[in-house]
Design a protein around this nucleic acid. Structure first.
Length: 488
RNA sequence: GGCGCAUUCGUCUAGUGGCCUAGGACGCCGCCCUCUCAAGGCGGAGAUCACGGGUUCGAAUCCCGUAUGCGCUACCA
């Protein structure tokens, strides 16, 4: 019987998680769900200085929004808690102490200033940077002197001076590092907090993590971690280093690249199911043609074997297309429910709140197939809600239409609409289509004129349905306004 | 600079020695549909598989080298 699959997503609350970060969470979650294993969430808040207020909440919210549920972690607990590293300090101290006693680690008294100087010197002489191990073999006298000087030491790991460390990465195959290229990294900082390296191996071991799925940027640290596992006598987990997600300039994703935090996509009106599908495809594929997949389909098909080795550039246009597809697949009711918060937030303040569901529901069929993001529904529907349309009268005179012709056409249309029996799209079409020739215009031009009069814009949903949704009185009022604009 | 990883259309990717005169998708272009805008349908342009050597009857696929890109090189994760 093999050990159960246990994976973890271990973000640090130093900012709002961006899409690259979240993609790592997605792959971990998919792997766990596909394998019937456990998905653990662990907060790595060991850097006091960089911790950002609200970031931890944003992490949980991001996962929740995408529907990535965790089996163990903050909020839900679990048998291996606590799942917040700042609450596990004694564990790290204990491990550091043991390493110290074994002679696998040592106290280092070098000041940050000295280390800076050392690095500058190394750079100047074009030597490989890294701690020069000054404190590695301190004599008892030297140690005593430094201790009494009052400086708070850090604990450093003693990297073996010779040999090599090799491991098999699930995605990249065999990778080898010469130990001589590794330096004595810090395990415990002088403020008593562990570094990532220490906390990471202690917790992954304690929490019985079977597979570490993390971004490629960690590949270079893996030999250090392996050496640590060995020093502790722990069996290391399997490793899989996932390809990174890059900005359009091919560099590591950052704020520079604009909206990259996952929750910003929610603000912009992207659907979580579309985000999940799209992000999964950044680095994983099912075959040579399947792209649209439900959460269930992805879970049942996911495997690390099909994860790509190459970093991917985030293609915003493709996301937008995919979001549009997902929006079109929504039922009209569901579409309405999802757009309502955006209308509440985005419509001009003079529009009365709350925006009625029933009316929004009537508009849904008119705009659903033309919306790519929910945020766009505001611009797509605002003329249904505002009292006063704002547009240049010249917009009415498209394609060389004369003022006189337009005025005549609008007057005629208005009179006929006033006396129309039924004000619905079929009746409107029955009336207006033949009327075009009557006013000396072709249908396209006539409808275009009416469209501008009634919506204030040249591109809008189909005219007759739009007019029906607007209602007779508002249509007449707006035609009146258009006439006034033309006659001024 | 050192170490590591990677390299197929602009982008995401399929491809695990012959099915590849390299397939799909987004985007782009054209046509059709059409009251505008979308959506949809059809078609097109777009990759000498980074480059150079091997191995093999045969290489995008295996090996070596070079180039380029990215990552790491903190008392950050």
């Amino acid at each position: 019987m093999t050990a159960p699959i246990r994976v973890r997503y271990a973000p640090s609350p130093t900012g709002y998680p961006h899409v690259g970060n979240i993609r790592t969470a997605i792959f971990n979650w998919l792997f766990a769900r596909h394998q019937g294993g456990s998905f653990i969430l662990r907060l790595e808040d060991t850097d006091l200085a960089r911790t950002v207020e609200g970031a931890a909440e944003a992490i949980l919210e991001s996962l929740l929004w995408l529907g990535l549920d965790w089996d163990e972690g903050p909020e839900v607990g679990g048998a291996f808690g606590p799942y917040i590293q700042s609450q596990r300090l004694p564990l790290y101290h204990e491990t550091a102490g043991r390493l110290l006693r074994q002679g696998a680690a040592y106290l280092c008294y070098c000041s940050p200033e000295r280390l800076d100087q050392m690095r500058a010197e190394q750079a100047r002489r074009k030597q490989p940077p890294g701690y020069d191990r000054r404190c590695r073999e301190l004599s008892p006298d030297e140690r005593k002197a430094l201790e009494s000087s009052g400086v708070k030491p850090v604990v450093r790991f003693k990297i073996p001076l010779e040999g090599q460390t090799t491991f098999t990465d699930i995605i990249r195959g065999e990778v080898t590092f010469q130990n001589s290229t590794l330096d004595d990294f810090v395990l415990l900082k002088s403020d008593g907090y562990p570094t990532y390296h220490l906390a990471n191996i202690v917790d992954d071991h304690e929490m019985q993590v079977s597979d570490v799925l993390r971004a490629e940027e960690w590949l270079s640290s893996t030999p250090r971690h392996l050496l640590l596992y060995a020093a502790m006598g722990y069996e290391p987990p399997r490793f899989a280093h996932l390809p990174m997600i890059l900005g359009p300039d091919r560099s590591k994703l950052s704020k520079r690249h604009g909206a990259t935090a996952l929750l910003e996509f929610r603000e912009q009106g992207y659907l979580p199911e579309a985000m999940l599908n799209f992000l999964t495809l950044l680095g994983w594929s099912l075959d040579d043609h399947t792209e649209l997949m439900s959460r269930e389909e992805i879970v049942s098909n996911f495997s690390l074997e099909r994860v790509s080795q190459t970093a991917a550039i985030f293609n915003h246009q493709k996301l937008e297309w995919m979001n549009g597809v997902y929006i079109r697949h929504l039922s009209p009711d569901e579409f309405t429910r999802r757009m309502l918060p955006f209308l509440e937030k985005g419509l001009p303040p003079e529009v009365t709140r709350p925006v009625p569901f029933e009316y929004a529901r009537r508009l849904a069929p008119l705009i659903q197939e033309r919306t790519k993001t929910l945020a766009e529904t505001v611009a797509l529907t605002d003329f249904f809600f505002v009292e006063q349309l704002q547009y240049e009268a010249s917009l009415l005179l498209d394609k060389g239409l004369s003022r006189e012709m337009a005025i005549q056409a609008l007057k005629t249309a208005r009179e006929r609409i006033e006396t129309l029996d039924q004000f619905d799209s079929a009746s409107l079409e029955g009336l207006l289509r033949p009327l075009a020739t009557g006013v000396g215009m072709n249908a396209s031009g006539f409808f275009g004129l009416l469209r501008v009069a009634v919506t204030g814009r040249k591109a809008a949903p189909p005219l007759f349905q739009t007019m029906e949704a607007l209602g007779r009185q508002r249509c007449l009022d707006r035609m009146e306004m258009a006439l006034a604009g033309l006659q001024r």
